[in-house]
Design a protein around this nucleic acid. Sequence first.
DNA 1: TGTATTTGACCTGC
DNA 2: GCAGGTCAAATACA
Length: 375
Amino acid sequence: MENMGDWEQKNLIAELRQGRELAQQLQIHINSSSSSRETREILLKKILASYEKSLSIANFSSSASGSVVAASEQQYYTGPAAIRMSESPPSLSGDDSDRDLKDHDQKDGSRKRKDMPRWTQQVRVSPGMGLEGPLDDGYSWRKYGQKDILGAKYPRGYYRCTHRNLQGCLATKQVQRSDEDPTIFEITYRGRHTCNQSTLIISPTHQHLESQEPNKNMIDQTQQQHKPQTLTNQHQSQELLINFRTGLKVITDTEDLDSMNEQSRPSFHFPSTSTVKPETHMFSPSTTDNSFTGNFSPSLISPSTPGTNYFSVSATGIHHSYGGTQSFHQSELTDHMISAAASSNNSPTVGFDFPLGNLAFDPNFTFGNNSGYIP
DNA sequence: TGTATTTGACCTGC
DNA sequence: GCAGGTCAAATACA
């Protein structure tokens, strides 16, 4: 804690206050006969998440200034962008994406793939139980291609951000089923989201929660999107989103943490997406968080969308790798994340149906999309 | 009818 | 030249 900088300290305080407010809200809801159980549970989960984040901040603060843990073999980062990222994290100010956009749009074919920041995560899917990790990462993706990969049993699916045309968002991802373990999917993300998916649907269930600090999350997130912050910030957000949503592990990169510590300052804001299905989500897509702008993916609470499937999620098996040459094993933060979700569900298996926005269990594992975006 | 997915063709990078 | 990545027309679906 003594290593904690001003930023961490402020965030920690903000988070603790957040937890207190949420607890107060919960108390109100408990005393209110009109309050639904779901609402109380949501609040409870938020409180837990808030505390977990507080612990994470505290832990991050010490880990960022301290030790470097050996790289996990499950983590990897591919491509030159990974190297560049570890050396000099790309900024969120848009230089990279803008350049990519120009390269892509103006020069048309000269898709500078190698310049795109790229990181990979692994998601485990239980054949019987469904998904053990999120393929819906909180963003809306549209499939634009599928390709058989040499030496791979299963085709690779190519997805781009749904808002590519509207907002010029160049984020893409590739989903590749593992040959060795068909229950594992490798999801490679490329580029960062420049779209603002947080301005999309807010669950009616949570609007009352949102009302306490109206649109603060959106503001924060919007600002975040335009801040000259590093890409790691967004990656981290995605990771955290993923893990909050599923209670899975984050394996992140020490260097990222270092770089975040020095440059980007993890905001823990969560990108939100396009679709909402109030009855199925575990976390609210909107919270009253400020520093922890918990814009959990509305895709968790999406309306019925073509190609969207719902599965039970168990809290095992995700390995999220994120670029860099150094990495550490599951951080304390990771453990906190796990415990947050686990404690919310009293079981390693998250007992809620999960919209697998991008996974369709056909024999070829063709991936559907998460197409429920309502503009 | 609008939107998403599929799939063959084309382009880029190595 | 090959493999991976993207485009875009065709198709499916709600």
